[in-house]
């Protein structure tokens, strides 16, 4: 099935994931363009990380297909998927701890097969662009949590990917750091032609950052739409947002 409209999209259709009798994902379909930010939200255990694992190749789905720019990539190894243009970050930051920030970011480019001199130039450019040039020779392990998050994202961007999956990038950040992250993330789609699928529990961040939201509950899609539509959706409020969203919705 070669759909021309999916030429520049990441799509998942009818994805089912079973773990020994437990259905973690049940017929989930989702799509992401190269110039948008989509939020993936839902309560704990609703299948968000499982979906990211399926998309990034860490898990092979029981049923359903994943395509990147129209090419079917279902069940390919993470390395192959990253070469196809989709790179993820992890719920717990996974930096190369004994390597410098500069080397960490460079490795993203090297992993994508970019030549050394170009990789170095790219890393340099990204560090300047995100204002962490002063950290370039600091080892990964010596960074603060917030800095590690940013470096991990830059390492992913350095691969020249078209789709970025961020698994809870704001977890463990304070309000100020999370605000700065919001500003930096919102520019990525236009700057790099790289669409973002983001999981996070920080509703303030998600509502301000995303153009569209996709809500999962117990492995099923329960709502899709703009932040306003989702916030007004009674099923979502009951299952996930609860009282958290009600006063906010009232205030706006």
């Amino acid at each position: 099935m070669h759909d021309l409209s999916n030429r520049e999209r990441l799509t998942a259709s009818g994805v089912v994931m079973d773990f020994a009798g437990l259905r973690a994902l049940d017929d989930v379909s989702l799509s992401l363009g190269q110039h948008e930010i989509v939020g993936l939200i839902g309560p704990n255990g609703s299948g968000k990380t499982t979906l990211v694992n399926v998309l990034s190749g860490a898990l092979a789905p029981t049923a359903g297909t994943v395509t990147i720019d129209g090419e079917k990539v279902t069940g390919l190894a993470p390395r192959k998927i990253s070469h196809a243009g989709l790179v993820r970050t992890f719920q717990t930051v996974r930096l190369f701890g004994t390597l410098s920030v500069y080397e960490n970011v460079q490795l993203g480019a090297l992993g994508a097969g970019i030549r050394r001199s170009q990789a170095a130039a790219k890393a340099h450019e990204l560090l300047e662009l995100f204002g962490i040039d002063h950290l370039r020779d600091v080892l990964g392990d010596s960074l603060s949590y917030g800095q590690k998050r940013i470096v991990e994202i830059l390492r992913a961007i350095a691969t020249d990917c078209n789709y970025l999956l961020l698994d809870e990038p704001a977890a463990g950040l304070n309000e100020e750091e999370s605000d700065r992250l919001l500003g930096q993330l919102s520019n990525i789609p236009d700057q790099f032609g790289c669409g973002i699928l983001i999981i996070d529990h920080d509703m303030n961040l998600i509502m301000r950052l995303c153009q569209r939201l996709h809500v999962l509950n117990q492995g099923k899609t329960i709502a899709e739409g703009t932040p306003e539509q989702v916030r007004a959706n009674p099923t979502v409020v009951e299952a996930y947002l609860g009282s958290q969203a009600a006063p906010e919705a009232g205030a706006s």
């Binding site: 993470p78 992890f90 992993g111 994508a112 097969g113």
Partner: peptide, 10 residues
């Protein structure tokens, strides 16, 4: 330093 991260970036 991190096998999975190395794999994930290709």
């Amino acid at each position: 330093d991190n096998l999975h991260a190395a794999d994930a970036i290709g």
